[in-house]
Design a protein around this nucleic acid. Structure first.
Lengths: 192, 192
DNA sequence: ATTTAATATTGACCGTGGTCATTTTTGATT
DNA sequence: AATCAAAAATGACCACGGTCAATATTAAAT
């Protein structure tokens, strides 16, 4: 029996979330301080941690929301058929994922669910990314010697690699898009 | 002119490093506390930060050292020729990289140099990993439609992906080795 | 041996995430 | 309306990474 959630609870939670969103809007994710959020929401610090396990849990919600919106956008257009089209279609997603170093690090850290029961918002988004890409690949003219699931996992791996290198001074000669295109050409349409 | 480093300095640094190593040996990287290290080394907290920019800088040194030793081991044997042999040869490296969640996260975070001038110990190890694998691939019977540099980057991307999934409950059905083998077979010896 | 400027060390202090015993509020029962 | 147990909120407190003005030590010059 897990009942009796008071109306107050959802109101407080909403106050915390909108206060947090306001902070992020004005100063970015990296700058968010729990103390600022609770002050803006008009509640005590302890209340924050009654609603979210830790600061990261709030971040997961905020970032997961935005990432889901980006994935909506990616899914909205006509399914891409070529490598270039796939990269274009995923651009909003990748752009948000690399919008802040802090965001990227957090995404990577929570990309996998630590326990089956609690798959977090970010792990869910990674699953969704995988699924979306897989469906595109199934319908596109790509190599057929390996299953589309594997191809999609590879796209994810290469996208993460390319995004990592975006933050790396040593490899800044090549742009993110060019690098990802090189990777995916070699992965999705080999000619050996 | 950047001279006049006192003998005291290297002695203090050595004390800090060996104290830190002792903590890691007994409790792991994750459990390391700066306060414990300085207490064991018999110096003040401020001294620690005169020697290392932050806690992560110390961690980079400790982890980089171990990782380099693993890479030594990987390079010691006869160069692997097949996918399976490559996976076996890299096993000590991957094993250490996933020995602790904390270690893996830190490795990813510092895998790229943020500025050309200061390439850290971990970024150096990633470069070395890349170079070692590339040399192996050059001499092995792999696909020839893409340059070995690209192949090696891909191996790194897939290894990271496989290691990430090791920490993920959702994907624990497949073992790390099996997954990496599937990836690398598809990447290094496509049959389309 | 003294002086002295550069270098190293110190530890009180701060920022910020997170805890928990105590107090307040809620809403169902009478 | 009064009661009361469960649920929510509170804020003083802690842990721990990191700072910096003050102090101590070194080693070269005299």
């Amino acid at each position: 029996m897990q009942k009796a959630i008071q109306k107050r609870t959802i109101k407080t939670r909403a106050k915390l979330l909108s206060a947090a969103e306001a902070v992020v809007r004005s100063d970015g994710y990296q700058a968010l301080r729990v103390e600022d959020v609770v002050k803006a929401a008009g509640v005590a610090k302890g209340t924050f941690f009654a609603h979210f396990n830790d600061k990261d849990a709030l971040m997961e919600i905020l970032i997961g929301e935005r990432l889901n919106a980006c994935l909506d956008q990616a899914e909205a257009g006509t399914p891409p058929k070529t490598v270039d089209e796939i990269i274009v279609a995923l651009e909003p997603v990748h752009s948000f994922m690399t919008s802040e170093r802090y965001v990227f690090d957090l995404l990577i850290r929570y990309s996998g669910a630590t326990a089956i029961e609690d798959i977090g918002p970010i792990a869910y988004c990674f699953e969704r990314y995988f699924r979306v890409v897989m469906l595109w690949l199934e319908a596109a003219d790509m190599r057929k010697d390996v299953p589309p699931e594997l191809l999609a996992e590879g796209v994810q791996a290469f996208a993460i690699q390319a995004m990592s290198l975006r933050f790396c001074a040593l490899h800044s000669a090549t742009t993110f898009t060019d690098r990802l295109e090189t990777y995916l050409d070699a992965w999705l349409t080999p000619t050996s």
